[in-house]
């Protein structure tokens, strides 16, 4: 803390993850390593205990990089990432298991050859926390917490539905009682009703467990729903960061307005709609990605037409 810029640890900072003027560029490697253009430029962001920050923006705007920086997966090129006022790189060992991530596709974090229970217990097993029985009990408790029956621990991931798998992934992230969780497009691949369950689960769990959360998504409606405040990214920079109420009203930045416009909110009327004419609207933007065609039974079918 000799440079005097890093904030001193204060009581307010308990459980807070802070990005302090962080920039990031991918290095090219090699002797004359040139840095690429900044993927993230001068971003400052704080996620306090019990709070969810939503991060929206188009693909390639640097959302996922922010997540990786906040988790300490990538060190920033400039600036600092701090947890409770201390830079991450100075407390790597202490932070093990206290930061977790939930990804878009649960199959990315669940080993298909391991029983669900084993996967959920894995962060504990790796950290050699508790005895076998203790871990076993904990897995049961967590599955229950995410609304799954304890018996599911004996199943393999492919025996579960997409929504159940995502719950398992969440249980796995929660088992170390983390201080901070990054949800990276965690509900984007889910169907509307499963998405609703998962979003509610995240909200409920956060109220109970009090972790800080960074919710990354390109789905404005989902972000607005779970977040306390929303940061809008564009080309590596945060162009607007406001409490979520602003996004239920009218946000400042033109791009934020475009995002909010993509959610057609109830009661509003759309003048000059692309279809021409004016009509009353009532509805929403459930905006989640369908799985690639390859996953459906009708998929890939056409090869046989050859």
């Amino acid at each position: 803390m000799s440079d005097g810029r890093a904030p001193r640890p204060v009581a307010d900072d308990a459980g807070t993850v802070r990005l302090d003027s962080v920039s990031f560029a991918y290095g090219r490697g090699g002797l004359f390593a040139r840095r690429g253009a900044d993927v993230v430029r001068d971003v400052s962001l704080a996620v306090a205990k019990g709070e969810t920050i939503g991060l929206v923006g188009e693909s390639g705007s640097g959302k996922t990089t922010i997540g990786r920086l906040a988790l300490g997966v990538n060190p920033p090129t400039r600036g600092q990432v701090l947890f409770e006022g201390v830079p991450l790189e100075r407390q790597r060992r202490q932070l093990r298991g206290r930061f977790q991530v939930v990804l878009q596709h649960p199959e990315w974090s669940l080993n298909p050859r391991l029983r669900v229970g084993t996967s959920v217990a894995e962060p504990l097993t790796v950290g050699k926390v508790g005895t076998r029985t203790e871990r076993h009990e904990k897995v049961g408790a967590l599955l229950e917490l995410v609304g799954l029956h304890e018996s599911l621990a004996q199943r393999y991931p492919h025996e579960l539905s997409g929504g159940q798998q995502q719950r398992v992934a969440i249980a796995r992230a929660l088992i170390t009682q983390p201080d901070f969780i990054v949800f990276d497009e965690a509900v984007s691949a889910l169907d509307v009703s499963v998405q609703a369950q998962t979003l509610n689960l995240i909200k409920t769990l956060q109220e109970a467990e009090g972790f800080a959360a960074l919710f990354i998504s390109h789905d404005m409606a989902a972000v607005r729903y779970v977040s306390d405040s929303v940061a809008v990214m564009m080309a590596g920079e945060i162009v607007e960061s406001s409490p979520v109420q602003t996004f239920y009203g009218s946000p400042n930045h033109p791009y934020s307005r475009l995002l909010v416009d993509s959610i057609v909110s109830s009661g509003e009327s759309l003048t000059g709609s692309p279809r021409g004419g004016t009509h009353a609207t009532a509805a929403l933007g459930a905006d989640q990605e369908k799985r690639p065609l390859g996953d459906t039974p009708e998929a890939g079918a056409a090869r046989h037409h050859l």
């Binding site: 065609l293 390859g294 890939g300 079918a301 056409a302 090869r303 037409h305 050859l306």
Partner: peptide
């Protein structure tokens, strides 16, 4: 998918 697209 591009072969499916060609069929289509």
């Amino acid at each position: 998918l591009y072969v499916t697209a060609a069929v289509a």
